[in-house]
Design a protein around this nucleic acid. Structure first.
Lengths: 346, 346
DNA sequence: ATGAAAGCGCTAACAT
DNA sequence: ATGTTAGCGCTTTCAT
C-alpha cells in the first residue's frame, strides 16, 4: 500500500485538497454528495492521513505522553496506563509510555519532549520530582496531570489516592486487634523516583504514634538496595529474620504493597511463623495476588485512577476549566485471613 | 517554555538551519567549534526538535505500533510490551499500543494506520487475523512482525513459543503419572482475536490422542462467552461442576493459563476436591500467581519474546536482512505441587 | 564545512 | 459549499 496523499484523493474526486480535508474529517459545510465522492475515492486509494503532516499544520499532535517511574508491567502501572488509554484512545489520541529508569532517561525525557509540541499533554505516574523538574513541567505549554503524585503542586490536575489516610486504616485495625508492637516493610528494591514508598512509611509511623505506640514499638524495615548479590528469596528471608528476631517482637505488620506482602507471608510461613496466629500481615493494593492468599489489604483501583487522569487531561486539552482539578479516589480496607487478634503472651 | 524553532537557534548561533540540523543530530562534517556554538544556543533556548516536522521531512516517524488483541494490563501483554519497549526505546523509538476491542477498533486501526507512514513498523501480539487483514498487513510498506502469532505467514519476522509443542509436555506428565482421563479448560471469556485459545486446546487434544487416550477420555471445556450475567465465581463453580460431574471423571486437567488455573484450583478446593490427591491441575504461563499456589505450569517468558520481536523490528527498519526471521523461544514445564499420581480407584 | 532552496502532506485563513 | 494560498518546522539535495 504505497502512501497516498490527500492531493491524489482530491484529483480522483475532482475537488480541491481542502475539500478532501474537510470531508474526511467530518466538518460541516460539505455537500453530502461531494463528501460521498471524496470518501469513495479515499477508500479506493486506501488513503489515510499522515499524522505528522496533520500535526505540523494544525499544531495538535494527538499524542499524550505517560511518564512512568517504574516498569510498565507492574500491577499498578499497567492498570493505570490502561485506564488512561481507555479514556484517551476513544478520542483519537495515541498514548505513549516513557519509562524512566535512571537519571539519564529522566534528563533525556525532559530534554527531548518539552519544547516543541511533541505531545498535547503529559501524565505523570507516582513520581517524586525535585523542584527543578517540577519547574520544567510548569513551564511546559501543554497540560500536565499527575496520577498518584505526592502532591498537587506543579500539576494542572491530579487524580490520586490519599496514601496517608489509606495507611491509617490498617494501623487502626492492628491496634484494635490488640497488637502492641508494629512493623512496616518497604519494597526492597525500588525506583528512586517512586513516591509511594516514602509517603506510606511516613504515614505508617505517624498513624502508629497517634494511636499511642511508643517509638520502640514501631519498627521500619527500609528499602535497602540489595545490590543484586542476593537472590529474591534471600532478600525476603532477611526481612523475615529481622521481623522475627527484633527485640520489639512486632506482631502486626504493614507492607508497602501486596507483591512484597505475599512473598513475605510465604517466607514467614516457611520458617514456621503462623499467619495470623503468630503475626498479622496487611498488604496494600489488593492486586491479583492478594485474594489468592486471602490477604488482608488496602484496596485501590488504578484503572479508575487512570481513567480519571485521562478524562481530566482530555478536558484540559480542550481548554476547559476543571471545577475539581484535584480529586482523591478513596481506598478501602479489605478484611481477609492474614489478620487476627494479637497473640497472648504465655 | 515557548516552542523554539530550529531557525531561532540558527539565528542565535549565527549559522544556517541546515547546520543546526546537522550539528544537533551529530552528523559528521560539522566543525567542532560550530557544533559547540550551536549546542550552547540550543541549550539556552531550550530547543528540541519537533518530531512531526522531522517525520514529515525525513519520512521516518520513529514510532512503532503494537497491536494488542486484549487488555494491556494482562500478564502476558504487559510483559511482552515491556520487552518491546526495552528493545526499541533505547534507539529513540516511541512504542504505541493499539488495543483492539472489537471489530470496529480493528477496522479503525486498519483504516487509519496503514497508508501514510504513520509508524515505521507494527508488531502484532497473539492475533488471529483473517486472510483479508493479513493481506492488508502484507501490503503495508513497513515491516510487520508477529509475537506469538499462530503462524509466520504474512509476517516479515516473528518471535514466538510453540504452543503445540508446549502443550505436549503437560499432557505427557499427566500420562506418566497414570491419569486415565484428562480435561482441558479454556479461558472462560476471551477476546475473539486471541490466537492462543484455539491452538492450545487443539494441541491438547492431539497430544492426548497420540498418547493413546480415547476420545471419551478427553474432555474440553470451551470458552463459552458467559454473558456478563453470572459473576466470576459462578463461572468457575460452573467449570468445577462440569469437571467433577463429568461421566469421564477426569483426574488430570490442563488449563489455558495460570490466571484461570488459579481461580479454578481455589474453587475446586472450596468444594472439597483435594489437589493433587483427587485431581492434578497444570497451568500455563508461570505468571506471578503460579508460584503462590505452588502450581505446576508451563513456563514462558513474554519479556524475552518482546525483546526478540523488538530487535527483529529494529533490524528490519534498518533494512537489514534477518538470517533467522522466524524464531521460536522454548518453554519449560515447571513441576510444583498441583500435580501428583492418579488417584487409585477404591 | 556551510548555506540556499525545495519540498514533506497537511490545515487554516481567506476568497469566492 | 468549495478553491487558493500560505505556511507548520524540519531534512535534504545541491551549490559553494
Amino acid at each position: 500500500m504505497a502512501r497516498t496523499t490527500i492531493s491524489e484523493v482530491a484529483k480522483a474526486a475532482g475537488v480541491s485538497v481542502s475539500t478532501v480535508s474537510r470531508a474526511l474529517r467530518g466538518l460541516d459545510k460539505v455537500n453530502p454528495a461531494t463528501r460521498k465522492r471524496v470518501e469513495d475515492a479515499a477508500e479506493k486509494l486506501h488513503f489515510s492521513f499522515s499524522k505528522s503532516a496533520s500535526s505540523l499544520a494544525s499544531g495538535k499532535t494527538m499524542r499524550v505522553g505517560v511518564l512512568l517511574a517504574d516498569r510498565i508491567s507492574g500491577w499498578f502501572n499497567s492498570h493505570a496506563f490502561e485506564g488512561v488509554y481507555e479514556a484517551l484512545s476513544v478520542h483519537g489520541y495515541d498514548v505513549i509510555p516513557y519509562v524512566i529508569w535512571g537519571q539519564d532517561t529522566l534528563d533525556n525525557f525532559f530534554q527531548t519532549l518539552p519544547g516543541n509540541q511533541n505531545v498535547d499533554a503529559v501524565i505523570v505516574f507516582s513520581f517524586d520530582l525535585d523542584d527543578a523538574k517540577k519547574q520544567v513541567l510548569k513551564e511546559l505549554t501543554v497540560p500536565v496531570v499527575g496520577l498518584n503524585t505526592p502532591s498537587d503542586d506543579g500539576y494542572d490536575a491530579t487524580a490520586r489516592i490519599d496514601d496517608r489516610v489509606s495507611m491509617y486504616a490498617p494501623v487502626r485495625l492492628l491496634h484494635s486487634l490488640g497488637h502492641e508492637s508494629l512493623a512496616y516493610v518497604e519494597q526492597p528494591e525500588t525506583s528512586p523516583f517512586l513516591s509511594t514508598s516514602r509517603i506510606r512509611s511516613q504515614a505508617f509511623v505517624s498513624a502508629s504514634r497517634e494511636l499511642g505506640y511508643a517509638d520502640d514499638k514501631i519498627m521500619t524495615i527500609p528499602a535497602i538496595v540489595y545490590t543484586g548479590m542476593r537472590s529474591q528469596m534471600d532478600v525476603y528471608s532477611g526481612i523475615a529474620a529481622q521481623l522475627v528476631g527484633s527485640p520489639s517482637r512486632p506482631t502486626g505488620v504493614c507492607v508497602e504493597n501486596d507483591k512484597v506482602a505475599v512473598a513475605l507471608v510465604r517466607e514467614l510461613v516457611r520458617v514456621g511463623v503462623r499467619i495470623p496466629e503468630d503475626m498479622s500481615v496487611i498488604g496494600f493494593d489488593d492486586d491479583t495476588r492478594a485474594p489468592i492468599l486471602d490477604m488482608t489489604t488496602v484496596h485501590q483501583d488504578p484503572t479508575e485512577l487512570g481513567r480519571a487522569a485521562g478524562n481530566k487531561t482530555l478536558a484540559l486539552m480542550r481548554g476547559e476549566r476543571l471545577d475539581n482539578p484535584y480529586s482523591v479516589v478513596p481506598t478501602s480496607l479489605v478484611l481477609r485471613d492474614t489478620t487476627g487478634p494479637a497473640p497472648t503472651d504465655d
